[in-house]
């Protein structure tokens, strides 16, 4: 080929058409896995598709939906919050004690739980932005602090049997079918979607996560927005604590230990990258649903509870690998991935 011609070809190639699939690239991996799972379950155990079972899945997913909304924003802003499990427990313990020991009105107590979460988020944000402790270390340490407070307050007691409104939020059903908690979870994620796409708060989370220096140079108040992200995350963790208490109709200081990593896993599976600047609320919804569906399937198949851990790990790696492969046009996108998987299986 003539040199002049090859030069112009190179230019044309670089400005390649962006395939439509790239817009949905973040949820493609988990969607494929959901379909695969459905296919497997169709043969293994059709009870999986019963309305009652689907509602159980939604019920289980609801708390993670609430947490994933905040986590998506935090991770998009190149942060991470490892304290949410403890924030949920602390908020729930405070609420439970107010109801049981002080006799505070249940609605007021629920509101206070969310405010406790907000305050925890504020402290996280303060440690990160003002004391300049890296997000990971700050929230890891604050996780210990919040958990410690919850343990001290509850003093080893399990608080149980709460007023109806709280239990209704946790395990009630609308029309005796749809879990109230799932409606709350999906509403929160929809609000998150709007915040992410259509408000400066979401836009600046992307900017801060994508290029912090550029965000600073354009005059974006990074401190304020990071504070907001962590406070929102904290408030939602407080809400998750309320929902958890309602579902169990009991709470203890050691509750919610697994919430944090499960939430982060769901968000990452949904295509939000830990490097910041890129995330998706819709992806987080899909990620949360996938993890809850897998847990449910394992229960139906009577596999040991602990296999959940293995499954979650495998799912995260599969999604992220899928995502990485799709993002690398040099490797031929989806067909390239199939080729390489085929080559590897030989």
């Amino acid at each position: 080929m003539a040199i002049a011609a090859s030069a112009s070809v190179g230019r044309a190639n670089r400005r390649r058409e962006v395939p439509w699939i790239e817009r949905y690239i973040n949820i493609l991996g988990p969607l494929v896995m959901i379909l695969t799972l459905c296919l497997v379950m169709a043969f293994a155990d059709p009870r999986f598709f019963r309305v009652q079972n689907i509602m159980i899945i939604l019920q289980d997913a609801s708390i993670y939906m609430v947490l994933a909304m905040g986590m998506t924003l935090v991770i998009t802003g190149r942060g991470i919050d490892l304290s949410i499990g403890s924030v949920a427990a602390l908020a729930a313990v405070v609420m439970a004690m107010l109801i049981k020991d002080v006799g505070v009105n249940v609605y007021v107590a629920m509101l206070i739980a969310v405010l406790v979460g907000l305050a925890c988020g504020f402290m996280n944000g303060f440690v990160i932005t003002k004391l300049r402790v890296p997000d990971l270390i700050a929230t890891l340490s604050m996780d210990l602090v919040f958990r410690g407070f919850a343990l001290v307050l509850a003093a080893g007691v399990v608080l149980a049997r709460f007023p109806d409104p709280l239990v209704w939020l946790g395990r009630g059903r609308v029309f005796e079918v749809v879990p109230v908690a799932a409606i709350v979870g999906i509403t929160v994620l929809v609000i998150g979607f709007v915040i992410y796409r259509y408000t400066p708060l979401g836009r600046y989370a992307v900017a801060i996560g994508g290029n912090t220096e550029a965000a600073v140079l354009t005059g974006i108040d990074v401190t304020r927005h990071k504070m907001f992200q962590y406070m929102l995350m904290g408030g939602l963790a407080g809400l998750a604590g309320v929902m958890l208490t309602g579902r169990l109709n009991a709470i203890q200081a050691t509750a919610g230990m697994g919430l944090t990593l499960h939430t982060i896993a769901a968000v990452v599976v949904g295509g939000t990258t830990l490097f910041g600047g890129r995330g998706s609320m819709a992806g987080s919804l899909v990620g949360v649903l996938l993890l809850s569906m897998v847990v449910n399937a394992l229960v139906l198949l009577r596999l040991d509870f602990f296999w959940q851990q293995v499954a979650a790990g495998v799912i995260i790696i599969t999604s992220v690998a899928f995502y990485a492969a799709l993002q690398d046009p040099g490797k031929g996108g989806v067909s390239g991935l199939v080729r390489r998987l085929g080559g590897g299986a030989r």
Partner: peptide, 12 residues
Amino acid sequence: AVYQDLGLVDTL
């Protein structure tokens, strides 16, 4: 100012 690294948020 337009800086050397352009100061763009490349995910936007």
